[in-house]
Design a protein around this nucleic acid. Structure first.
Length: 497
DNA sequence: TGAAATGTTGGGGCG
DNA sequence: ACGCCCCAACATTTC
């Protein structure tokens, strides 16, 4: 009997074994009734193929951990991860030649540069008689599946999500596929050469990633633990708690989702199974959480249909917006030294842990765009480099939403007041105290507005305001009321054109 | 998934 | 008892 040729499974942002359609398809290939042929799991590091958006520093730290985790999980079932460096097409060709593989399977990505690159690879391999097929592993619904009655992409979230849920009534997202059991992933005759994860040099040379490693467990196991925590402890109060940066009320699944360590179908079914067991008729928490998953779907829908939006505003009139060029203000924002405690806490949380609470993301983003009048693209770049969950679709939607220039965006005149937001969502100031420790001893009533504190209160709290000294805290770099007026005037200037 | 400005209402103090 | 004013509380509109 002819020995079946191996199948290569090309891993990218699908670093898991659970619910992995390409992996399952590979296992079924190549064999008759007696089972499949061998499977070669491959990861190729080719950041130069990611256009203007190669993985940022925080993403690389995460990837390092996630690749290690995937390799270890594969080894537990008798396989392993082959790691190579790009360029991708040449690397794949050489792998195919060395291993005599006859097929390449992968999970789809939706970034413009990835779509173009993957299409080239598919065509090139097919021209050489190699089977090449992609699968949906990253979304509940493909961006091209959900369309308006006029057969157009959606531009507003609510009808988009309603249409998605309606589609789910007809055809629920498929039941998640099982993990391959021990021995089911057949090893090839000989493994091709592989680099180690360390060889990719994803970790920073300067030691700054400790905070990320303390806060997170990259990999499928870490993702599963977070999903369990979500279902057991978070979902019930999610509708209110998700807005509280001083509480652990969010899912913290974003980096796991970005790297595909957790399947959205797995989430869908876990949440629905949980809701089925509930006695109460209102499911505000689970519904709100699924709507957040919906925003992620919407972001991918928009990126797929409007691939220029990572760089350019979706609403063209915003191309003429009179943004400022102010490197000093940008630096103060990046460093968390704007003088607004909630803003600074958020940016410091980001720097230390590679993540920021979503409510605070809205506040700091609004501050950059509206109080400082700096282009949203500058904020998007900073988030891209510092977030462990940096995701081109989500990041683009978030920034265009807050800047008012995107689909279904917040109107430009919606300007967050960082003091009000702080007092509303961090009422005891615990979030600020954690990340801006120099203000920790101020009373609750002053912690979001230290510049209003009387001299005596400052002295008692050991707070030194304004000076550049060690342990001092800056005065506001812009006055809120002035900045608000200035932002509204800038918008008028854009409209007048 | 805002905030500020402006408008309205109604209770209480007071002459 | 009555009208007037003040202003907090809430509603509406505007940015």
């Amino acid at each position: 009997m002819m020995k079946a040729s191996p199948t290569i499974v090309w891993f990218r942002q699908d670093l898991r074994l659970d619910d992995h359609p390409a992996l399952q398809a590979a296992m079924k290939r190549g064999g008759g009734s007696g089972g499949g042929g061998s499977v070669i799991p491959v990861f190729i590091w080719a950041p130069e193929e990611e256009g203007s958006w190669p993985p940022g520093e925080a993403s690389k730290v995460w990837l390092h951990g996630s690749l290690r985790s995937l390799d270890a999980d594969l080894r537990k079932i008798g396989s392993r991860l082959i790691i190579q460096r790009g360029p991708t097409l040449a690397t794949l060709r050489s792998l195919i030649k060395k291993t005599n593989a006859d097929a390449l399977l992968w999970s789809r990505r939706y970034e413009p540069s990835a779509i173009a690159r993957d299409a080239d690879i598919k065509k090139s391999l097919k021209d050489h008689g190699i089977e090449a097929e992609s699968f949906n592993a990253g979304l509940l619904f493909e961006p091209f599946e959900i369309r308006t009655k006029e057969d157009k992409p959606y531009l507003v979230f609510t009808p988009f999500w309603k249409a998605s849920l309606k589609r789910a009534e007809r055809a629920e997202p498929g039941e998640p596929l099982p993990r391959p059991a021990l021995g089911k992933l057949k090893a090839p005759e000989a493994w091709p050469p592989s680099l180690s994860v360390d060889d990719l040099q994803l970790m920073p040379t300067i030691e700054w990633a400790g905070g990320i490693q303390e806060a997170w467990t990259p990999g499928e196991r870490g993702a599963t633990i977070q999903l369990d925590r979500l279902i057991e402890n978070v979902l019930g109060e999610y509708d209110e708690s998700r807005n509280r940066p001083d509480q652990a009320g969010t899912s913290r699944l974003s980096p796991h989702l970005h790297f595909g360590e957790l399947s959205p179908r797995r989430i869908w079914h876990a949440v629905h199974e949980h809701v089925g067991k509930l006695k109460s008729k209102t499911h505000a928490g689970p519904e709100r959480f699924m709507a957040e998953i919906g925003w992620r779907e919407f972001a991918h829908h928009l990126l797929f249909h409007f691939p220029h939006t990572p760089e350019e505003p979706l609403r063209p009139q915003f191309a003429a917006f009179p943004w400022e060029d102010n490197p000093g203000a940008l630096l103060a924002w990046q460093r968390g030294r704007t003088g607004y405690p909630l803003v600074d806490a958020g940016l410091r949380e980001l720097w230390h842990t590679g993540w920021m609470h979503n409510r605070v993301r809205m506040v700091v983003s609004s501050f950059l765009v509206k109080h400082l009048l700096l282009p949203w693209q500058e904020g998007a770049k900073w988030f891209w480099d510092t977030l462990v969950d940096a995701d081109l679709a989500n990041n683009t939607l978030g920034w265009q939403w807050i800047a008012g220039c995107g689909a279904d965006a917040a109107p430009y005149f919606r300007i967050f007041n960082p003091v009000t937001q702080g007092e509303k969502f961090d009422p005891q100031g615990n979030y600020v105290r954690k990340w801006v420790p120099e203000l920790a001893r101020l009373p609750d009533s002053l912690i979001h507005r230290p510049w209003e504190a009387p001299m005596l209160a400052l002295r008692e709290a050991g707070v030194e305001l304004g000076s550049e000294g060690d342990g001092s805290y800056p005065l506001p770099i812009v006055d809120h009321a002035d900045a608000r007026k200035r932002a509204l005037a800038a918008l008028e200037a854009t409209k007048a054109r």
